[in-house]
Design a protein around this nucleic acid. Structure first.
Lengths: 208, 208
DNA sequence: ACCTGTTTCAAGCATCTGCTTGAATAGCTC
DNA sequence: GAGCTATTCAAGCAGATGCTTGAAACAGGT
């Protein structure tokens, strides 16, 4: 193929592909994988139904791609927030860092919140590419538990990992529940004051 | 109508109605309201498709009825568990009582777990009859917050109600998430030892 | 035996589902 | 212009969806 510029010839194609992706992201966040139809997506993206088959192969493939992108975005944000913790961080700081991506999404709304809602749904109903991403989730939980350990007396590492999963579950539930949208109208500080103590308590359990 | 026994003539009809209800409960718990079809339900209930229209009017009406029954079952169990708390109960006892219905469902599985899964889904996506049941939910949260108040220093009643909502959200997430099924294989004591400290921490926040 | 009201059933209807198809459109090179 | 390739489009297909229909089956009462 003597077409170095063959892919550039039609940036319109890429634009359609991106619009489909964005539309899928929104609808997946709203209604989940079942419940959003091919025609809904193409209508929202202002594209023809055949565009999905052409660009992604199938509706399922498009959804998988959108979900995987959402998961990766979340992992990146979460990893960055947690990586700023030092070995001397107390449980409150860990909770604040851990909740940061979800809180930002709640406050900002839009496609950021959509991303987090997809992540939360993926936690309830693990998608195709879950296996590939799971190590990253486990790594983050292990990191959090390691930082937590010195400051939570008499609780085994394994149990701290469980508590981290519960904390993540709580945040996931929040972005999916109506109360989450409600809390998203508050200010950053208000939300933090409400959420961080709860997560701190989740980490610490009955040991103070 | 001179038919005092007209309703008794066909108890078979009631049996079909009940089978439809049970099948709907199971499928709603598994897949949610979207995602379970008329034919799936009637196949599971070994009934004809027309039976749904005949007994309930429509698929939606059947689902609404099943969801409402699940919510009422949950509210009864929750209310009973919480009512046994006294004004001197500490946060740990409150947490244990509050989590009792969900923990029982996880351990027992079957239609009890199905009921709780429907409740959890209803919390994320409030159904038709939510308005009618909401006061009972609010009453329970207020009761829990009132018992909690004397033992959680310096936290406003309103914030304790929020924490109770978070605690409920955590339990709801648990019955929907794969980890919940996993934890259901443990013993009652093991599950309690794992869950109650976390919920206690959720209630207490950073104040011990 | 006949009637009456309740419940079941097979068949079918209109609509929506995901996906395919063949033709049309547009940019690029020559 | 012609030729090539990438993209878009209207139309249509087979299957699934919720629901309706008219007939049948059945248990009583007369």
């Amino acid at each position: 193929m003597h077409a170095q510029k063959a892919d550039q010839r039609r940036e319109g194609g890429l634009r359609t592909r991106a619009r489909l992706m964005d539309a899928a992201l929104d609808l997946l966040a709203e209604r989940g994988e079942d419940g959003c139809t091919l025609r809904e997506i193409t209508d929202a993206a202002e594209a023809n139904v055949a565009a999905v088959s052409y660009h992604f192969g199938s509706l399922k493939a498009l959804c998988d791609a959108a979900i995987e992108r959402a998961l990766e975005r979340y992992l990146d944000a979460q990893q960055e927030a947690v990586s700023e913790l030092g070995p001397e961080s107390n449980p409150e700081e860990v909770a604040a860092a851990f909740a940061r991506p979800m809180m930002d999404a709640l406050l900002k709304g839009g496609s950021d919140l959509a991303t987090m809602r997809i992540v939360a749904r993926a936690g309830l109903d693990p998608p195709q590419g879950w296996v590939r991403l799971r190590p990253r989730f486990e790594q983050i939980r292990a990191d959090v538990a390691r930082v937590l350990k010195p400051n939570v007396a008499g609780v085994a590492q394994q149990e701290l990992i469980f508590r981290t999963r519960f904390a993540a579950g709580l945040l996931n539930w929040l972005v999916l529940a109506p109360i989450g949208v409600e809390l998203g109208k508050k200010t950053d500080k208000q939300l933090e004051r409400l959420l961080v103590p709860v997560l701190t308590g989740t980490f610490r359990g009955t040991s103070c």
